[in-house]
């Protein structure tokens, strides 16, 4: 049994909130750069160059990458041999968000009630996902989620007979219909299987996967490649102005499901595909 003070989690969340909103992962930067080189449509190439300039400006001048510094999505992988002490874990995470967003000059984008809509003025509460895992460590993953792309996400409860083709059509159609709204080029997070609630979480977690590593399962690795080709062949392009770079990557996560069902969810992320992690 290992004791971990929850204030360590507050510090980790605060530091990740600041870092992820100013610096993009190496894998995302590399992919954008590869896409710019491969893009032969001049307006599309120009936009990708400006997106790269934005990444550079954010880091050098200390300006957040995007004004939508997101709803704080926090994933906690808690070792089963850990004892969290010193207060409530939920309060500790929210304190980290409060601190990180204030110190990082980040936007408060959360309203306390979905219909009565008054701003909480500190970007809390976070959307927290807890997973209990073996071991005596805690992994804190932080992903600020912008809503331009979140709003274009979709779920479908397909029937098993719709199979692989049904899944692929749903994913490609979702991205196509989103058009220029989710700030393409996007990262496409796909969940397949599980239940109505689980499949959306899979899609969100798919967005946390590194862009430069293919799926561990060759069957799904091939599907990711095929979907990326199909999405980029539709011509939506960066910002929806035409071109072949509509998506930077397609990432699939799956789970066992019921004999009667084939749930599929698509969670979109913009090119500012922010996430980071700290292991305690």
């Amino acid at each position: 049994m290992r004791n971990i003070f929850v204030n360590k989690i507050t510090d980790a969340v605060a530091s990740l909130a600041r870092e992820t909103n100013y610096y993009l992962g190496e894998d995302v930067c590399k992919r954008i750069s590869q896409c710019r080189e491969a893009e032969d449509w001049p307006p599309a190439k120009d936009i990708l160059a400006k997106i790269e300039e934005n990444i550079k400006t954010a880091g050098e001048d200390g300006i957040p990458l995007c004004q939508d510094s997101g709803l704080a999505c926090v994933f906690l992988e808690i070792g089963q041999d850990v004892h969290l002490i010193g207060g409530s874990i939920e309060d500790a995470v929210n304190e980290g968000v409060r601190k990180g967003y204030a110190e990082g000059y980040l936007r408060n984008s959360v309203v306390s009630d979905p219909l009565r809509r008054s701003n909480t003025n500190d970007n809390t509460p976070a959307a927290i996902t807890y997973d209990i895992v073996p071991g005596e460590r805690v992994k804190v993953i932080f992903a600020p989620k912008g809503f331009g792309a979140e709003n274009m996400s979709r779920i479908a409860m397909l029937a098993p007979f719709e199979g692989e083709q049904g899944v692929k059509d749903f994913v490609a159609t979702t991205v196509f219909e989103a058009g220029g709204n989710p700030c393409p080029p996007v990262v496409v997070g796909v969940g397949i299987g599980g239940t109505f609630d689980k499949v959306t979480l899979l899609a969100k977690k798919a967005l946390l996967q590194p862009l430069d590593l293919p799926n561990m399962d060759p069957y799904y690795a091939e599907m990711e490649e095929e979907l990326l080709k199909r999405i980029n062949g539709a011509g939506t392009g960066p910002q929806g102005f035409g071109g072949k770079t509509t998506a930077l990557a397609v990432k699939i996560l799956t789970a066992p499901t019921h004999i009667a069902g084939l749930p599929v969810a698509v969670n979109l992320n913009c090119h500012v595909a922010r996430h980071g992690e700290i292991v305690l």
Binding site: K50, N54, D61, C66, G180
Partner: peptide, 29 residues
């Protein structure tokens, strides 16, 4: 950023206005 409705496009024509798009996600720039 992103497409507008037919109603908005009609209003743009009628009022001789312009809809500009900036790059979504390029907030620092």
């Amino acid at each position: 950023k992103g497409p507008r409705s037919e109603e908005v496009i009609e209003a743009i024509k009628k009022n001789k206005a312009v809809y500009f798009a900036a790059i979504g996600g390029a907030g620092a720039l």
